[in-house]
Amino acid sequence: NQASVVANQLIPINVALTLVMMRSEVVTPVGIPAEDIPRLVSMQVNRAVPLGTTLMPDMVKGYA
């Protein structure tokens, strides 16, 4: 099963993503693939993302 990107903490809106904010985990439904974590660094989410939430492509500005 493919690992997805999961919030490692509350990720506020309009804050640049850092490695420490994200972890990889096998979850259902599948979200952004874990291998895209380096690409996500410095991008921003378009809504607050609670701890443990799977990041979906539509949550990250400029990802999709």
Rank of each mutant, 00 (worst) to 15 (best):
N1D: 11
N1L: 15
N1E: 12
N1M: 15
Q2K: 14
Q2E: 15
A3W: 11
A3I: 09
A3S: 11
A3M: 15
A3N: 07
S4V: 02
S4M: 02
S4W: 02
S4C: 05
V5I: 10
V5K: 01
V5T: 06
V6F: 02
A7M: 04
A7I: 03
A7P: 02
A7H: 01
A7L: 03
A7V: 07
A7C: 04
A7K: 02
A7E: 02
N8G: 09
N8W: 04
N8A: 09
Q9M: 13
Q9I: 09
Q9S: 12
L10T: 11
L10C: 07
L10P: 13
L10M: 15
L10G: 14
L10N: 14
I11G: 01
I11H: 00
I11V: 09
P12V: 04
P12S: 13
P12N: 13
P12Q: 08
P12R: 06
P12C: 05
I13R: 10
I13T: 13
I13Q: 15
I13G: 09
N14C: 05
N14P: 00
N14G: 15
N14F: 06
N14D: 13
N14V: 03
N14Y: 08
V15P: 00
V15Q: 14
V15S: 14
V15C: 06
A16W: 08
L17T: 00
L17I: 13
L17A: 00
L17M: 10
T18V: 05
T18S: 10
T18H: 05
T18D: 07
T18N: 07
T18G: 07
T18E: 12
L19V: 14
L19T: 11
V20I: 12
V20F: 15
V20K: 12
V20W: 15
V20A: 15
V20S: 15
M21T: 02
M21P: 00
M21R: 02
M22D: 01
M22N: 00
M22F: 09
R23M: 05
R23V: 07
R23Y: 07
R23K: 11
R23I: 06
R23E: 04
R23S: 09
S24H: 08
S24D: 07
E25M: 12
E25P: 01
E25K: 13
V26W: 12
V26H: 11
V26K: 12
V26F: 15
V27T: 11
V27C: 05
V27K: 07
V27H: 03
T28H: 12
T28W: 12
T28Y: 14
T28N: 13
V30W: 09
V30L: 12
V30A: 13
V30M: 14
V30P: 15
V30E: 10
V30D: 08
G31T: 02
G31R: 02
G31E: 01
G31V: 01
G31F: 03
I32E: 01
I32W: 02
I32K: 00
P33R: 09
P33Q: 06
P33L: 08
P33E: 04
P33S: 06
P33H: 09
P33D: 06
A34D: 07
A34R: 05
A34M: 07
E35F: 10
E35V: 06
E35W: 13
E35M: 12
E35K: 15
D36E: 14
D36L: 11
D36C: 06
D36T: 10
I37D: 00
I37F: 03
P38R: 14
P38N: 11
P38S: 13
P38W: 10
R39N: 15
L40E: 00
V41M: 07
V41F: 05
V41W: 03
S42N: 12
S42F: 10
S42T: 12
S42Y: 07
M43I: 04
M43F: 10
M43S: 07
Q44N: 10
Q44Y: 11
V45I: 08
V45Y: 03
V45L: 10
N46D: 08
N46C: 06
R47G: 07
R47W: 06
R47N: 08
R47A: 09
A48V: 14
A48F: 09
A48P: 14
A48I: 12
V49A: 05
V49K: 01
V49W: 03
V49T: 05
P50S: 10
P50M: 08
P50F: 06
L51T: 14
L51Q: 12
L51K: 15
G52M: 04
T53P: 02
T53I: 09
T53A: 15
T53L: 08
T53V: 13
T53N: 07
T53W: 10
T54K: 04
T54F: 03
T54L: 04
T54I: 09
T54Q: 03
L55G: 02
L55R: 00
L55V: 09
L55T: 02
L55H: 02
M56I: 09
M56N: 05
M56S: 06
M56W: 05
P57K: 09
P57W: 11
M59C: 04
M59L: 05
M59I: 05
V60H: 01
V60T: 00
V60W: 02
V60E: 01
K61N: 14
K61R: 15
K61W: 12
K61I: 15
K61P: 08
G62M: 07
G62V: 04
G62P: 05
G62D: 14
G62F: 10
Y63G: 04
Y63T: 03
Y63N: 04
Y63R: 03
A64C: 07
A64P: 15
A64F: 08
A64H: 14
